[in-house]
């Protein structure tokens, strides 16, 4: 996994003059990494910077030794991103087209891509989805489709933004099993400590800074206590962030 590590050196990110991320120094090589933090703490922004969807205002980002914001084509096989909201990820009217798109982007012909998409759907007992209109799927089903589309591209690292938020309990368990079986590096972002319990390393983000970084037992312990403490307070004066 070392070759596919993600490295951030002195990274800061600002939007519309407002600092969103500051002083981020991370070298992510572990197979399973969790990133936790409250709403608005900058988790999604960190993911966008790591994946090269936006360039940092200050500092360097390296994915497998390359700048992800510049080398988009190379990143297709390096990072796959599951967006927090599936409606912002799905580009095509039907399931088959959505799955095939990533594959054609990687150089397959339309025909090959469609055939592989059919094959992938059949593998997960969803063959009947191929011609289905994406907007008729439920939120959880749409998210599952998004996951299938990025898995189809077999990236070295998966960045998952709140992957469990829209899923019912059986689907969560199934997704957990599916993810556990994958060889890829997986970085899971969540506000919920339960989502990252089994990770090798957990990073706690607050106000756009890393406040804790280490083994899950320790970090999640402190995180949970702090969340319980804040939850106990009446006024949520700090939410404005």
């Amino acid at each position: 996994m070392a070759a596919s590590g993600i490295e951030l050196r002195g990274v800061a990110y600002a939007m519309a003059g407002k600092a969103i991320l500051s002083d981020i120094d991370l070298h992510l090589t572990e197979a399973r990494i969790g990133i936790v933090g409250r709403n608005g703490s900058g988790k999604t922004s960190l993911m966008r910077v790591m994946a090269g969807l936006v360039a940092p205002s200050v500092g360097t980002v390296l994915v497998a030794g390359q700048d992800p914001a510049r080398n988009r084509k190379a990143m297709l096989t390096e990072v796959g991103i599951l967006f927090q909201n599936p409606d912002h990820q799905i580009l095509f009217p039907t399931v088959g087209e959505e799955l095939a798109f990533g594959l054609t982007q990687m150089g397959q012909t339309d025909k090959e891509a469609r055939a592989q998409a059919r094959h992938l759907l059949a593998e997960v007992d969803r063959a009947h989805w191929e011609g289905a209109a994406t907007h008729t799927l439920s939120q959880g089903q749409r998210q599952y489709l998004c996951l299938l589309s990025i898995l189809a591209m077999q990236p070295a690292t998966l960045l998952l933004d709140e992957p469990f938020a829209a899923l019912d309990l059986p689907s969560q368990a199934r997704l957990r099993r599916r993810l556990a079986g994958l060889a890829q590096q997986i970085i899971t972002i969540s506000h919920d400590p339960a989502a990252v319990v089994g990770a090798d390393r957990v990073i706690w983000l607050d106000g756009g800074r890393v406040v804790q970084d280490g083994p899950p037992d320790h970090v999640l312990g402190v995180f949970t206590d702090e969340m319980a403490r804040i939850g106990g307070l009446d006024a949520d004066a700090d939410l404005s962030g």
């Binding site: 969807l53 988009r72 991103i81 967006f83 912002h88 799905i90 990533g102 982007q105 589309s149």
Partner: peptide, 15 residues
Amino acid sequence: DDADRVAEALRARGG
């Protein structure tokens, strides 16, 4: 806003 986010999703999958 959607247009911006969809642009990002497109970028995420090779533009």
